[in-house]
């Protein structure tokens, strides 16, 4: 799928989810952040959390279903998600601070928030 198409889909998703951390009217920078986050996610996260974030592969240590914020163990606020990625979480989630810059982790947070269901409080 071309990057432009991904961005359009994500924009549509974001607009339909006013309660999410993404702004109701995301600007180009936010959309760009989600797109960058997706690229990083594909490279670093899919083996545990799956391509759709639902962690249905269920292979590596009961990875969190990222599409369901009620299943999060270490907080759902963007700064909490950021900390979980940066410093690790639970038993199995490793800290990524040595491999990803803070800016990249922020992009990942943007993408993860875009996985939440529409209308979710």
């Amino acid at each position: 799928m071309p990057s432009r198409t991904i961005a359009a889909c994500l924009l549509a998703l974001a607009l339909a989810s006013p309660e999410r951390a993404l702004a109701a009217d995301p600007g180009p920078r936010e959309i760009e952040s989600v797109v960058s986050g997706k690229a990083l996610y594909v490279q670093h996260c899919t083996t545990c959390h799956g391509i759709d974030g639902k962690a249905l592969i269920d292979v590596i240590a009961n990875a969190t279903d990222l599409s369901d914020p009620t299943a999060y163990y270490s907080g759902t606020r963007p700064e909490q998600i950021f900390t979980s990625i940066r410093n690790g979480a639970g038993v199995a989630m490793p800290p990524w601070r040595s491999q990803l810059r803070d800016e990249e982790i922020q992009h990942l947070v943007s993408f993860i928030l875009s996985l939440w269901p529409q209308g979710r409080e």
């Binding site: 490279q43 083996t47 690790g88 979480a89 038993v91 199995a92 989630m93 490793p94 800290p95």
Partner: peptide, 15 residues
């Protein structure tokens, strides 16, 4: 040693 939190990187599936 399996724990990514205690002994990073822990285990993960390989690309």
């Amino acid at each position: 040693f399996t724990s990514g939190r205690a002994y990073p990187p822990g285990v993960s599936m390989n690309p």
